[in-house]
Design a protein around this nucleic acid. Structure first.
Length: 330
DNA sequence: TATTTTACCTGAGGGC
DNA sequence: TGCCCTCAGGTAAAAT
């Protein structure tokens, strides 16, 4: 499932292909892929066509592509047929940097449960669950296509407005701009973000009247952590998933945050976690971190640390995996 | 206001 | 073989 490492793998693969590319066409194959897009702003395809992409950024599990101004050719021939908007002719503007390129908008993207962003050569046949296709003209790589593929349709794209970050730091990983899409503004920074405030996180943990795994999954407290890496970090820190946050000692809270960072970084180094075809990088390749899991999905198997048996418990209508011998509520 | 629960969604896999 | 049911889980809205 796409959590921070998987989304970062997608971002880093996407960035070189989209930076300075111009969107020459947008195919919306399934409107459900645009549930985050506010139709009042206008038609998604029309709004995007002719825009220049300035890079690829990420905070937690959210991705966004800041956009430059509409190219000079937009409005000279953009057509929309059955959801397809196309600007005829070459509209690549390599190296163009106008004052109007100040990014005020971005393509927002969330992979949901099963979303994939695939980088394809122009004309590549669409995948079975392809929802949106962006056709690009890149000054170096030429014609490219970005396919947004999503089996369960929990993922979504939108054109969103960028808003300033309250702390004045860069909005996310991959950009220097001190702004984030409005739909990401309420999401906390992720623990790999240099601007993540450890002390603020610890204070929030103490103030919450909840349990530790709920807190780790709360994207307004710390972003990027999902069910898999929450279980792994809790296992590594020897913390039970139902430990009340207010009862965590300062030392244990620091240890837990360190383990969250460690597990995310290790997963990132291994290309993310793939259990099936639901997570792949922009080239369609799977990650290897599933081989390194110590708790998630290992119910009935021996704990690698103490030899106890890993248990799967029901938690928030999903699952939680832990070792009852070395992860106890204290 | 803070926290918890539910809806959304599709395909794989198991049981009959 | 085919049908039905359960399960997976991130986000946001609804409920408590």
């Amino acid at each position: 499932m796409p959590e921070l490492p998987e989304v970062e793998v997608v971002r880093s693969g996407l960035a070189p292909a989209v930076t300075d590319a111009v969107i020459t066409g947008v195919d919306v194959l399934d409107e459900r892929a645009l549930t985050r897009h506010d139709r009042v702003r206008g038609d998604f395809a029309t709004l995007l066509t002719g825009r220049r992409m300035l890079g690829a950024a990420r905070r937690g599990k959210f991705l966004w592509v800041p956009l430059g101004s509409v190219s000079g050719l937009t409005g000279t021939g953009a057509t929309a047929v059955s959801g397809r908007t196309t600007v005829p002719g070459s509209i690549a503007v390599p190296g163009a940097t106008a004052a109007s390129d100040a990014p005020g908008e971005a393509i927002l993207l969330h992979l949901g449960m099963s979303g994939q962003v695939l980088l394809r050569e122009a004309g590549t046949p669409l995948e079975r669950h392809a929802r949106v296709r962006l056709s690009l003209e890149h000054p170096v790589h030429g014609e490219l296509a970005v396919h947004f593929v999503d089996q369960r349709t929990f993922g979504s794209l939108a054109l969103d407005t960028l808003v300033a970050t309250p702390d004045g730091a860069a909005g996310g990983f991959g950009v220097d701009l001190c702004s984030v899409p409005s739909q990401v503004a309420h999401i906390a920074r992720d623990p790999l973000d240099p601007a993540f405030d450890d002390m603020r996180f610890f204070a929030a943990l103490r103030a919450r009247r909840t349990t530790v795994k709920r807190a780790l999954l709360d994207q307004t407290l710390i972003s990027g952590v999902g069910n898999i890496y929450a279980d792994e970090a809790l296992w590594a820190a020897r913390v039970h998933f139902e430990q009340p946050t207010a009862s965590l000692s300062s030392r244990k809270a620091r240890e837990l945050l360190a383990e969250v960072r460690a597990v995310l970084q290790k997963a990132l180094a291994e290309g993310g976690t793939s259990f099936d075809a639901q997570y792949v990088n922009v080239n369609g390749a799977a990650g290897y971190f599933a081989h390194s899991l110590n708790a998630y999905g290992r119910q009935g198997q021996a704990c690698a640390r103490c030899g106890g048996t890993i248990v799967r418990a029901t938690f928030m209508n999903r699952s939680s995996h832990y070792c009852p011998r070395c992860q106890r509520v204290r």
